[in-house]
Design a protein around this nucleic acid. Structure first.
Lengths: 157, 157
DNA sequence: TATTGTTATACTCTATAACTATA
DNA sequence: TATAGTTATAGAGTATAACAATA
């Protein structure tokens, strides 16, 4: 049957048998074009990696963002987040301020420059998504997002 | 409405608004529990990272595996693959041999020790998948895999 | 000339322990 | 004692150019 199918240039990442049963493998395979598209539409244009981009978008979309909450939300260890936020602050994309009620806590907010960048990035994400999802119907896209959310939702922390 | 929802410890990775529209974000979020489960069931037990694991499984499941084909399939640059295969060879999990018909080409195969490890890993992947997908019905699991394949299939190389 | 694989190297990302300050 | 965030550091992962061998 298809037992002899091998790695084909025509189907670059698609291989047989055991791997096909594993969610992690499919996520990694789906992430290949996603990462490529990210670099093309966002990464090189705005000089941001995925984590930096995600942080800016989350800060733009949520009222009260702290490093602690970000660390949990995107699964980045706190020490690394400190460095990342330092860099974003140096670039004047975000600003950090201390909570008045609990001096241990920081709030992260966008600067005007950061807000402008977020707006500019929002202007190109539709094209990026279209490139990635053009072969899926709207119903399939909605289903895919829901199923991925279901997987993501069931982590402890 | 939900405009004020923020990063909640109860929903660690789930945030509002713009990010929710982006495939890459959902893939990254779904990869958090997947990577955690991988470490627990495979990584620490067998001392393999995801790429090494994937290579062993692909070599086990495909007739003719070469570094060139692996490089394309899993999107790992050739120089890095050389190092990875060197390490797997040092651990006597794989063996490399030259093609007789084209001396540039290498074939990668499992050693008996590598085959034993693959068998041992296959014995635990069901439990790993069950942990990750227990909240999804069989139909949802099948749908998720098909949709991820559709996304992965449409990359150039 | 083109392809397969290697060497060398630089860079980025990731993870952990130990620390400060605040509660 | 516990939590939020920082500093320091080591290790792992990633990307690129230049190369040798073969076609």
């Amino acid at each position: 049957m298809k037992n002899t199918r091998v790695l084909e240039p025509a189907l670059p990442g698609h291989l047989d048998h055991k791997m096909m049963k594993l969610l992690g493998y499919h996520l990694a395979q789906a992430s290949i074009p996603t990462n490529t598209a990210f670099k093309k539409y966002i990464g090189t244009v705005f000089q941001l990696n995925k984590v930096e981009f995600t942080i800016l978008m989350l800060v733009a979309s949520n009222e009260t963002v702290t490093p602690k909450r970000l660390s949990i939300a995107i699964n980045v260890p706190a020490p690394n987040l400190t460095i990342i936020l330092d860099n974003l602050e140096k670039r004047e994309l975000i600003a950090r301020s201390r909570s008045e009620t609990d001096r241990r806590v920081q709030y992260v907010n966008l600067t005007p420059k950061g807000l402008t960048m977020v707006d500019d990035m929002n202007a190109v994400t539709d094209a990026m998504e279209q490139e990635l999802l053009k072969h899926l119907t709207p119903a399939e896209r909605a289903m895919l997002f829901e199923l991925l959310k279901k997987v993501a939702l069931h982590r402890r922390v």
